[in-house]
């Protein structure tokens, strides 16, 4: 099916997949600005390694939906399994329902929106980008994160190692509210912003290339 999808993917094309039946690795490695719609649930690694397409999943997604997303937009109508948006670098991933454990693990850019609740270790080791959680966040939120920010509308079960809360500016709040409104998500008015406390930063020894540059 993936080779068929790749064949159909061209700038502006619209592709519909009926009865995906929660199969794995669907719509992987597509670099065209096309749109792909799945009428049902998908399995693991759906819509991963994408650069450009707009993908709509009308059911649930399994583990690691949107893995390594570069650009484009992925929308999951219902719940996502663990590791949604793992290592994503750009673009938007919107989960309408709940996300499993480790959403946004090691993400390096882009925006991950979770309409429902987020699981254990969300934003683990994230390095850039932002995660917006409209429901509650599970334990160890933002554990060992380097950079980036996590915004939570609901409660936070616990912060992870080296994660801390920070005041957010009015501009940030307006930006987030307008972004959510564009997704049809309304009702949230306040957020808790979570960032890295950077107490685990120990960059006192330089890399080889850094040394040679001095």
């Amino acid at each position: 099916m993936n080779s068929q999808l790749k064949g159909l993917a061209a700038p502006g094309s619209e592709i519909t997949v009926r009865n995906p039946n929660a199969r794995h690795n669907l719509a992987v490695g597509i670099f065209e600005n096309c749109s792909i719609r799945f009428e049902g649930s998908v399995g693991y690694y759906a819509a991963s390694l994408l650069d450009g397409p707009e993908v709509v999943i009308e059911g649930n997604a399994g583990w690691a939906v949107g893995d390594n997303l570069m650009s484009g937009k992925i929308t999951v109508a219902k719940d996502a399994g663990a590791s949604a948006g793992s290592t994503m670098r750009g673009g938007q991933l919107v989960i309408g329902g709940d996300a499993g454990a480790r959403a946004g693990i090691s993400m390096k850019g882009g925006t991950l929106i979770i309409g429902g609740n987020a699981g254990f270790l969300t934003g683990f080791m994230m390095q850039k980008g932002r995660i917006i959680i409209c429901g509650d966040a599970g334990e160890a939120l933002g554990d060992s994160m380097y950079e980036g920010a996590i915004y939570v509308a609901g409660t936070i079960a616990s912060l992870g190692a080296d994660a801390t809360t920070e005041e957010m500016s009015e501009d940030e709040l307006i930006d987030i509210l307008s972004l959510l409104e564009s997704q049809g998500i309304t009702g949230q008015r306040t957020f808790t912003k979570v960032v890295s406390a950077k107490r685990l930063y120990h960059y006192d020894s330089l890399e080889r290339l850094e040394k040679s540059a001095l």
């Binding site: 009926r18 049902g40 649930s41 399994g81 709940d98 499993g100 599970g138």
Partner: peptide
């Protein structure tokens, strides 16, 4: 039921 959605729950930790 094959083409239909099911209500599945993913237990956490």
């Amino acid at each position: 039921m094959a083409g239909q959605e099911i209500d599945r729950v993913e237990p956490q930790k």
